Computed example of a mutant assay.
Amino acid sequence: MAAITVSQDKTRRGPRGWGPGQRGAAGDQERGGLRRKVRRNISAHGFLLGALLCFGFFTWYPMVREVIMSFQKTKRGETSWVGLENLDKIFADPAFWQAWRNTLLYTGLALVLGFAIPFFVAILLNELRHAKSYLRILVYLPVMLPPVASVLLFKYFYDPDFGLFNHILSALHLPTSLWLNSASTAMISVVIASTWMNMGSATLIYLAALQTIPGELYEAAELDGAGLLRRIWHVTIPQTRLILSLLLLLQIVATMQVFVEPFLLTGGNGPQGSTTTVVYLVYQYAFNFNNYGSASALGLVMLLVLAGFSAVYVRLSRNSD
Rank of each mutant, 00 (worst) to 15 (best):
239 Q>V: 03
284 Q>N: 09
59 T>Y: 09
148 V>C: 02
183 A>T: 08
298 L>G: 02
267 G>S: 02
107 T>K: 10
236 T>N: 04
292 Y>T: 11
96 F>A: 07
13 R>Q: 14
99 A>D: 01
118 P>F: 08
70 S>E: 06
92 A>T: 06
29 Q>M: 11
267 G>N: 00
94 P>Y: 08
94 P>R: 11
179 W>H: 03
186 A>T: 02
291 N>S: 13
227 G>V: 04
169 L>T: 02
241 R>A: 12
137 I>M: 15
5 T>I: 14
221 A>F: 04
206 Y>M: 13
288 N>T: 06
29 Q>A: 15
260 V>Q: 10
215 G>L: 09
52 L>A: 15
300 L>Y: 09
65 R>M: 09
80 S>P: 02
144 M>G: 09
15 P>G: 04
121 V>L: 13
250 L>T: 07
214 P>T: 06
112 V>I: 15
219 E>M: 10
205 I>Q: 02
30 E>T: 08
144 M>P: 00
190 V>K: 05
3 A>V: 08
192 I>E: 00
221 A>L: 06
3 A>C: 00
125 L>V: 03
198 N>I: 02
8 Q>F: 10
197 M>V: 03
106 Y>K: 08
228 L>F: 13
73 K>A: 09
315 R>E: 03
318 R>D: 01
100 W>K: 07
288 N>F: 09
273 G>M: 09
105 L>V: 06
289 F>K: 13
270 G>A: 11
290 N>R: 12
171 A>N: 08
260 V>M: 04
59 T>V: 14
242 L>Q: 13
167 H>D: 01
274 S>P: 00
73 K>R: 15
48 L>I: 11
150 S>K: 05
201 S>G: 07
116 A>P: 01
293 G>W: 05
2 A>E: 08
208 A>T: 05
187 M>T: 01
125 L>M: 07
318 R>H: 08
19 G>Q: 10
105 L>Q: 12
64 V>G: 12
120 F>D: 00
159 D>H: 14
197 M>K: 15
51 A>L: 15
43 S>V: 14
255 T>H: 05
171 A>S: 13
280 Y>Q: 10
26 A>C: 07
191 V>A: 04
10 K>H: 08
174 L>V: 04
132 K>G: 04
259 F>A: 00
213 I>K: 11
219 E>N: 12
125 L>F: 00
65 R>W: 08
211 Q>I: 01
